[in-house]
Simulated assay, not measured.
Amino acid sequence: MTVDEITAFIEALGGVQTLRPSEGDGTPEIAWGDRFFTYAPDGSDGAAAQPFTTIVTKDYPDEPPSGLDRPEAFRVNLHVGTEEFVARIGRDPKAAPGDLEPLSATDDVFFAHPSYGTLGWIAVKNPSAGTELALQELITKAHAQAKHRHDRRAGA
C-alpha cells in the first residue's frame, strides 16, 4: 500500500478532511509531508478536531525511532481504543510502553504507537499484504468512532 492509496481509501469513507502540512502554509517544518485525517463533514472544524488516523514520513525527535529514515518509508497511526489494542497488540495499552518497541522497526506489523500507545493508538510501518485488510478495517472503525464523536458534539 502506498501513502496515496491509503489516503484515497480514507477520503472515500466520507466527511474526511485531510490536512497536508507543507512549506509556506505556517505549519511546523517537522510536519511537512505528513497527513492528518479528521472527521469534519462541513470542512470547517478539521484543524481543531483530533485526527483519527495519521501518516508520518519521518521519525519525530521526541519518539523512539521507527526506521523512517529511508526513502518511501512511512508509518500509519490510528486510534483503535483499548479493546482493539489488546486484540491486535496482545497486551493492555497501559502496560510498560517498552514491551513492543523492537517491532516499531519491522515493516507490515502492527505495534503500539511509540508515543500514544497508552492512549489506544497503534501503528504499522510500510503496510502491505500482511496488514492491508486489517488496516482498512481498523481505519473504517476509527472513522466511524470519529463520526460518532463529531455527531455527539454537534447534538445530532
Rank of each mutant, 00 (worst) to 15 (best):
F85K: 02
S104R: 15
G26L: 06
F36N: 02
A123P: 03
D107I: 00
D34I: 00
R20M: 08
A40S: 15
F110C: 05
A49N: 13
G117I: 04
T106W: 07
E29T: 01
S66D: 06
D108G: 03
K141C: 01
A146C: 10
I122V: 11
P21S: 03
A40T: 03
L133K: 11
E72I: 00
D99R: 12
S128Q: 14
G117F: 12
F37I: 03
P61T: 10
H79W: 09
P61M: 11
D4P: 00
D62G: 03
V124G: 09
A144D: 15
D108L: 02
G24I: 00
T38M: 04
G130F: 10
E23A: 05
R35Q: 12
R152T: 14
D99Q: 11
V109D: 08
T82F: 03
G81I: 01
K125N: 07
A129M: 03
I30G: 01
A40Y: 07
H150L: 09
V76T: 06
Q17R: 06
H79L: 04
G43C: 07
P93A: 02
P64S: 08
Q145N: 13
S104P: 00
E132Y: 03
F9A: 03
S22M: 13
D92W: 04
Y39R: 02
T53Y: 13
D107C: 03
T54Q: 14
T118K: 14
I10T: 09
R75P: 04
L19F: 07
S44L: 11
A12S: 15
T57L: 11
P64K: 09
K125R: 15
S104H: 15
D25R: 06
R70P: 00
A73M: 14
A112I: 00
V56D: 06
K147V: 01
S128T: 06
T38R: 13
G26K: 11
H150S: 07
A129I: 01
V56W: 08
R70K: 14
D42V: 01
P71Y: 12
E11F: 04
F85Q: 01
S115K: 12
L68C: 05
S44M: 11
W121D: 02
T53M: 15
D62M: 10
E83C: 01
R149N: 07
K58P: 00
D69E: 15
A112P: 05
A95G: 08
D34F: 01
T38I: 01
L103R: 13
A95F: 10
Q17T: 04
D151H: 09
V86S: 04
F52N: 06
H113E: 03
L68T: 02
N77Q: 07
